[in-house]
């Protein structure tokens, strides 16, 4: 699906423009099992027991006031994705104890068979739930807001760890995804906002794709206020007429009753 190809390119351009001391990149083309074995945390359903309360937070990522953005971009052209590459622009988790870092995350996934109908399920990838030990996405809707626990921080949990965990999870949960690349940005609110701008219309494009996917399932998630375009208009009109008739009948029955009562009282 070429819809997001331009945004993937824009993300790579962004990475290119931010190359420097502040930028680290690692590449991991291991198998899923090798990735799992290489990280010091559990991953998978139920990996995280419980929640991370504020008292147990090592670092906060993506507080909306600090700057936050997150997108998942997908393509069927796997050659566009640098599979296994994890890019970090800005400070890493282990150097940010007690801080509230701005957080931008772009997940780029590729699979030859991916199509529009997969878009909704693919967005679900972003909802980590309890699948990464020591990493909790807070329940906020429009952005990415996360916590890393003190416990995993003491086990050298870094963005590389997080990236590897996410790659392993994505590939094992979605075998049709064969390429995964991740960008993390923590360098500053301005950079996160710039990243957000570069992919800003991806979200509305995604909404359009979702609408079409729902239509193919037989649902229209939008409602056109122009009744003349609606194929149920006749049904609506019939119901309205029926309700009017019922009410008229009720009124005349009530009026007749009142007449009878009034007559008998005379």
């Amino acid at each position: 699906m070429a819809a997001f190809d331009g945004y993937i390119k824009a993300t790579h351009d962004f990475i290119q423009s931010m190359q420097g001391d502040n930028c680290t990149q690692t590449v991991h083309r291991d198998t899923v099992d090798e990735l799992r074995a290489s990280i010091p945390i559990k991953i998978g359903k139920g990996a995280m027991q419980g929640i991370i309360m504020r008292g147990n937070t090592f670092v906060e990522l993506g507080n909306p006031l600090a700057g936050s953005t997150s997108h998942l971009l997908w393509t069927e052209n796997c050659s566009l994705i640098q599979d296994g590459r994890i890019t970090l622009i800005g400070p890493d988790i282990d150097t940010a104890e007690g801080q509230s870092l701005p957080f931008g995350q772009i997940l780029m996934v590729g699979g030859e068979a991916l199509k529009n109908q997969d878009h909704e399920q693919l967005q679900q990838i972003n909802i980590i739930g309890d699948q990464i030990e020591g990493y909790m996405l807070r329940s906020s809707a429009e952005n990415i807001w996360a916590r890393v626990s003190r416990d995993v921080a003491s086990r050298e949990f870094t963005f590389e760890t997080l990236g590897k965990a996410m790659i392993a999870l994505i590939k094992s949960n979605r075998p049709d995804i064969t390429s995964v690349e991740i960008l993390f940005v923590t360098s500053g609110k301005k950079d996160v906002e710039e990243l957000a701008d570069s992919v800003s219309s991806a979200k509305s494009l995604g909404s359009d794709i979702l609408k079409e996917a729902w239509k193919e399932r037989g649902y229209d998630v939008d409602c056109d206020f122009d009744c003349s375009t609606c194929h149920d208009e006749e049904v609506c009109d019939d119901i309205r007429d029926t309700i009017v008739q019922i009410k008229q009948k009720e009124r005349s029955e009530n009026a007749a009753e009142e007449d009878i009562i009034a007559t008998s009282n005379k």
Partner: peptide, 18 residues
């Protein structure tokens, strides 16, 4: 607005709140 908000909230809450 769009009914997708119903679906989106369900998807998020089901996962987050088990």
């Amino acid at each position: 607005g769009t009914a997708e908000n119903f679906a989106g909230d369900i998807r998020r809450i089901v996962e987050d709140y088990k």
